[in-house]
């Protein structure tokens, strides 16, 4: 069992409050996943500077040396802002180039997210502690997805926590388990050159969508294709730089509920995570149908 939540703000004036609205949603899902938690926040869709969020278990890790080392490798100024045991690395010509330089030069540094708007923070521990560690309640942004994990497929670790990001600004959270992830991981890795950081089945789903998007598919098209190519149980919440989507497998045994007002659209594993949102009394509340792609924004 896991808990997943997503919040997409339709009214831009709410953006400074994204974290304050989102953090209680994730905390409410603690019973569904007390092992670890993670959040993906889209800070600013207009931002253009490449940004990679990285993790090192040592909070005293020397990020300054990493910054100068990376600057030499990418031939541009690189800045690093530590956030607990994570750090935001920005600079260079492209986020993927920055990521590759990190992979090459600092193999013990884990890449959490790559893009221009997206920041992913995740760690082991209770959701409320993880949220406090990264000060998520104070974050602004346009949309966010989050996950509380009760591990089934792989170890309880920071790397194994969701959300997963495998390319520019795409992220995915997953409640369920995939049964064909090993074959698909092998295929994506061998034939499409996608680099995996974990043994987790959900990372394969994220990588699959990244590959489809890189081939020119829209997020909706990529998710329609996922219905054919992914085997297993899943409710997904997916974010892109300017889009948000929800998909349940055809059997729909993993729960999901959605709510929408003029100001926001939200999804969660259970309604109680949505019960505190402003205007919920008048919101349209429904259960997403099996094998049906729901999207908002540019998707």
């Amino acid at each position: 069992m896991c808990g997943i939540v997503g919040l997409y703000l339709k009214n831009p004036s709410l953006r400074p409050e994204l974290g304050a609205l989102f953090a209680p949603m994730l905390t409410e899902m603690s019973d569904r996943g007390p092992d670890s938690a993670g959040i993906a926040v889209y800070r600013d869709a207009e931002a253009a500077e490449p940004k990679v969020v990285v993790f090192h278990p040592d909070e005293a890790f020397d990020w300054d040396t990493v910054a100068s080392g990376l600057a030499a490798r990418v031939g541009d100024a690189v800045s690093i802002e530590p956030v607990a045991n994570h750090a935001i690395v920005s600079g260079g010509a492209s986020a993927l180039a920055l990521r590759d330089a990190i992979f090459e030069a600092y193999p013990d540094v884990r890449v959490m997210s790559v893009g221009t708007a997206l920041e992913i923070y995740k760690d082991v521990g209770l959701p409320k502690d993880v949220l406090a560690r990264f000060q998520v309640g104070g974050m602004g942004g346009s949309h966010a997805v989050g996950h509380t994990r009760m591990a089934t497929e792989s170890a309880v670790s920071t790397e194994g926590a969701h959300p997963f990001n495998t390319g520019d600004d795409l992220c995915l959270v997953h409640n369920g388990s995939l049964s064909n992830h090993n074959g698909l991981r092998e295929w994506l890795s061998t034939h499409k050159g996608i680099r995996f950081q974990t043994e987790n089945d959900s990372e394969v789903a994220a990588a699959y969508l990244t590959w489809r998007l890189s081939e020119g598919a829209s997020l909706s098209e990529a998710l329609e294709a996922a219905l054919v190519d992914l085997d297993g149980f899943y409710t997904f919440a997916v974010g892109t730089k300017d889009g948000f989507a929800v998909l349940r497998d055809p059997v729909a045994c993993k729960p999901a509920v959605m709510a929408e007002t003029d100001d926001w659209v939200a999804m969660a594993s259970e309604f109680r995570a949505l019960a505190g949102l402003p205007g919920i009394e008048g919101a349209t509340v429904w259960e997403p149908k099996p094998a049906t792609v729901y999207t908002w924004g540019r998707a």
Binding site: E270, R272, A273, L274, G276
Partner: peptide
Amino acid sequence: VLHPGGRH
């Protein structure tokens, strides 16, 4: 019963 709030 008021404010059930999605409780189980």
